[in-house]
């Protein structure tokens, strides 16, 4: 890590792209943990939910029946970690019959073309 970054002078744009459904694989939870850990570094963080990643934000998840931890409430804590830029893909939502009313947090809906521009504008992209 550069000295500038340690002193907080250089702020980079970090984009986390979330593409997986929440419980069938470990990707969604791992991404969330990386975001929370990375939040300590005071960077400019954005999260995009595309493809099956939009299912991560589905309201009303109840996991007692599958004996796994329901981590969806943690997305509502992101704001307190100063992670406030959450985007979802309009095309991904439409393909899955979801609307913003289905989601557990406030998000900004973007077309895939708009997201492509947004990704272009980042310094670092992590994909899960």
């Amino acid at each position: 890590m550069s000295e500038e970054m340690m002193e907080g002078e250089v702020v980079k744009k970090f984009m986390y792209i979330n593409r997986r459904a929440p419980y069938g694989s470990i990707y969604a939870l791992e991404s969330l943990e990386v975001v929370l850990i990375g939040a300590a570094f005071d960077q400019d963080v954005s999260l995009a939910f595309v493809d099956d990643g939009v299912f991560e934000l589905k309201k009303d998840q109840e996991t007692a029946g599958i004996d796994m931890k329901n981590f969806s409430p943690t997305y509502r804590a992101l704001e307190m970690y100063d992670v406030e830029k959450l985007y979802v893909s309009k095309e991904s939502m439409d393909a899955r019959g979801l609307t913003v009313d289905d989601l557990i947090v406030d998000v900004e809906v973007k077309t895939d073309a708009e997201l492509a521009d947004l990704f272009d504008d980042q310094d670092v992209i992590f994909s899960f």
Binding site: A21, P22, Y23, F55, K58, K59, D60, Q61, E62, T63, G65, I66, M68, N70, S72, G97, D102
Partner: peptide
């Protein structure tokens, strides 16, 4: 059913 519930999908969906 338990997998639907876990993923937040109500029966009427």
């Amino acid at each position: 059913g338990p997998d639907l519930k876990a993923r937040g999908i109500a029966d009427d969906r």
